[in-house]
Design a protein around this nucleic acid. Structure first.
Lengths: 198, 198, 198, 198
DNA sequence: AATGAATGAGACTTCATTCAT
DNA sequence: CATGAATGAAGTCTCATTCAT
């Protein structure tokens, strides 16, 4: 069993990152199963062999891609949370959250689909997504509390609010049902969530 | 080139159905990409060859599986809609819808995940899901109107309500976040949707 | 071992002939290896199963097709021979032979290619072609002798003359080299063969 | 989709050549359709997979085999042409051409049959054979002219002469009709062609 | 005699992974 | 560390032939 390098030299770190980035792009474009390691290597500008110097196997690339995804996709959400200050004005804050969620979705939709699809087939992927959801809910809840907002079952409210926001963002980015008036939809979501918290 | 059998004999119809059923079970259990045609044939109790007598290729099985899924998974939802009568009591109706959605999710969760995962890779799958969403929204909207309910942007309200219900059902069936009080969550969803429509 | 029917009823004879005819057409169009038995059956308007009531296997169809080919393709050649009468005027006869050969080639070129291609892989096919060549040479030689023509090594002359005629016919039907003046070519062939025999 | 290796390392070039050589031998022995890629790989001493590193598919091997065949089979013919010098003595030259043709046929007969058989099913194969015929005719014509020979319709004469030579060579190598006196046949061919050109 | 569904060996091809250089 | 050729198991699909009806 060849042990996998934990690269310390800068060049090696770059190489590993290029592979992850290549995996990211290809998995997002074509899905995990429709991407092969030779393509990843080519896109990363390295040989096929060296991929196995940095990763145990193809799935191992996926795991690192997932980590990158989580960092990069959720940073804007957390950035919004960090700006919550008392006294909290939901009328101001909520649009920001919605905008951030839609933007995140727009930028990462393809990767999100790919990774989410693997949730049911890979325990590690599933666990990371669950942990992520938990972190989002926790941090949002904490942010609200710090900003002076209190409520019964706040955790559950927040959790579901985040689900709703996600649904809305997904709707905006993907579905494009011809028959939906998206401005009206947004108003509905906003006022509903406002009612929930105020 | 080779034309696909359109089975007429009862035996042939049975065989085709057994293959679809086998595909259904295996795709749900292991996902589309982790299931091979030999396994499908074996599970269906037929030879590998005959699979290609009824389907052009593996994806073609998926399409039929998807049709079955749509029929079977959404029947309970539509059944609930058909019982709406004026005057509509949302307090009675909403729990029924939630229960139906959770049950549908519970019974078909694995298949749902598998199929939804393919949405981003297969136009036909995506289109069927979009059409399904549209049908659910339309029928729900029509059912409400027939039962005497009217509102601005009813379509959008219903669409988003259905998304929310789906999120909730998904939450109940899958996530099992240890920190969530599911009864409280359900109350929140119910009261929020009640507010939306009443 | 299922014994093959030697059909005596008219309907059975018709069925067998339809299969042979279908084989003929498809083998000529697409070649032996690119034609499958299901297609033959379909083209013949019978079931796949019954083909094996009349033929041991696919190759067996080929053999019958070959017999048909030989009969049908060479009949016009032999017809010309039968008209030779003394005193033989080569100037009249030769053009007739060339015309017959070209016509035969034109009408049967595709089948000829298909069958000839199998010569090196199937002893029976090879033998039939050899026997055919021998018959053509023999009958031509006999016809000449009966018409009063005599010569040293007549057999060899005739054999090679027939080869030349075949080459010419093939050239006319297939190659269509843009740079060849086919009328000139024909004159050359005619005068050369005339010299050979006169 | 997958790009085919263009081998640069010597090892890779050797491997590719071994595959082509193996294809050559097997196609010649058993024909194209009766040879499978696993056999080719085995005969080449490589794995099945690597075959597809160098060739898109089985047909692609055939194309390279055909190129080799053309180079190798026609070299002796062209070698003879290159020795033509004025004043041209047909009595000397013609036997050389016949000998070269018979030898080429003897050495490459099996491959010739296999490849020629595919002419009617593969445009690229057909085109290569046509181009080859054209080149033979052109070079022979040019060689004659350079050596001081001139004639009406020289191109057509040469073309047909080459056909005749081919027929003769084929006859010698293959048919082995018991009833033919091959020495006599050769005399006939020689004197006829001599008459054609002198 | 006839049907056409069914069989299963085997063809072609892909690709995650290993290894010689 | 790096390359890219090589491996071979496994996947998709075809088709000559058989068999239940």
């Amino acid at each position: 069993m060849e042990s996998i390098r934990t690269p310390k030299q800068q060049r090696a770190i770059d190489t590993k990152n290029r592979i992850i980035r290549a995996g990211y792009e290809l998995f997002a474009q074509k899905g995990y199963y429709n991407t092969n390691t030779a393509e990843i290597a080519k896109q990363a500008g390295v040989s096929t062999g060296i991929v196995y110097g940095y990763f145990h196997d193809k799935r191992d690339i996926l795991i690192d891609v997932l980590d990158i995804y989580i960092d990069q996709a959720y940073a804007p959400i957390f950035a919004v949370l960090d700006q919550f200050v008392a006294p909290l004005d939901f009328g101001t804050v909520l649009p920001q959250v919605l905008d951030a969620a839609v933007k995140v979705h727009r930028d990462n939709a393809a990767m999100h689909e790919t990774l989410h699809a693997l949730t049911s087939q890979d325990k590690a992927v599933e666990d990371k997504f669950l942990a992520l959801e938990e972190e989002v809910t926790s941090r949002m809840t904490a942010a609200l509390q710090e900003a002076g907002y209190h409520s019964d079952h706040l955790f559950e409210k927040v959790h579901w609010a985040m689900d709703s926001v996600q649904s809305f963002a997904h709707e905006c980015v993907f579905d494009q049902h011809g028959y939906i008036d998206y401005d009206a939809l947004r108003s509905i979501v906003e006022s509903t969530l406002l009612n929930l918290f105020v």
